[in-house]
Each structure stands twice: as structure tokens, then as C-alpha cells.
Amino acid sequence: MSQQRHARARAAIALLTVVLLATPPLRRTLEASMTLQMLVQLPLLALLGAWLAAALPARLGTALAAWDRGGCSGLLLASVAALPWMLPRALDAAVDLPWVALVKFAGVPLLIGAPFALSWPRMGFVLRGVFCMEAVATCFRLGWLYLVAPQSLCSNYLIDDQRRLGQWLLAIGLALCVALLGKLLAGRFDTRGSGADPPDRP
């Protein structure tokens, strides 16, 4: 099937890109600032995880679906795995300690990007809404924290960098808000759920 071959090719590219991102020159570039690490490197790794997930064999996908009703498990795993990366010391440790770097380069694609991508189609209207609101709230919370913290929270990064990241997070939160509002006002929704999760629904 050409669609599957396409997904496999994309997964191969994703895997290669993760390895490339882990090479010293690219690592140094993207970890040179807190803003780049948090807003470029980490999201990129998560996105590549989503590409990897698309190549999952159909049989394994069905088996996983039985443990992921309504996309709950995938969303929960992705959220829980993302939580430690909100701690300033995790951003520091990923730069200073090789084992934390390894956890980042393997964990962010496989525990955040992949489960989220697998579960999103299974998630219903309400869960998606909750996720979107929480994403906006997280951007605002973290952005505000980084903007007002009187001292640099990371030992590897300067306070100006931290403030810039705070501004970016607020801007992203605002953009998400606007996009959601647009979708709510003008978009179309299937409020019955996604249709991809029919098994034992009445």
C-alpha cells in the first residue's frame, strides 16, 4: 500500500532527523539559548515522534487502541511526560548530563509526540477542548513565570533569554487563544466524537 510506504519513509526521515538533532553541532546551536531549546528543539522532537508513530504497523495500532479508549491514555502519557520539561533544572540537566540528554532525545519523541499523535484521532470533542485550554493555560503560566522571575532560573542561561522565552510563550498562548476562538466561531465540529473509536459505543 503506497500510503503505508509513504508513512514508513517519513518515519525513517524522522528517525534520521532525531539522530541529526542529537549531533554536537545541532545540539550546541539549539541548546545555546533557553528559548531555542524549549520552543524549537523540544517541539521538533515531539513532532518527529508523531511521524514515527504514523508508521506503526496496523495490528499494533489496533492492540494499543484497546488500552486507549477515547484517546485518554495517550493524552495522559504525553502530558505526564511533558511535565518534567517544564522544570528549569531539566533544561539545565539536558545540557550538562549525557544521560538526561539521552532521555530527552528518546523520551520526547516516543513518550510525548508519538502517544499524542496516536491518540488525537481517538479523542472526542470534550477531551480535545480540555487539552487545548490546558495548552493555552500552560503557555500563560510558564510565560508569566519566566517573565517575572527576578533571577535566572537556569544556571546555563541568561535572564534576558528567560524573559524572551516568557514573551514568546505569552505570544504563543495568545495566538492559540485566537485560533481556538476562530475555530469555535467559524469552524465545524463533530461533537459526537471522532468516529475512529467506535468499538463498544452504544
Binding site: W67, R69, C72, S73, D200
Partner: peptide, 15 residues
Amino acid sequence: MSSLLRTLLLDLFIV
């Protein structure tokens, strides 16, 4: 085991 129960169990473990 229903998929609801499995999901619940897995979610408890994840948390």
C-alpha cells in the same frame, strides 16, 4: 476486559 477498564488501569499506572 473491556477497553474502558483497560484504559482506566493503564491511566492509573501512567499517573
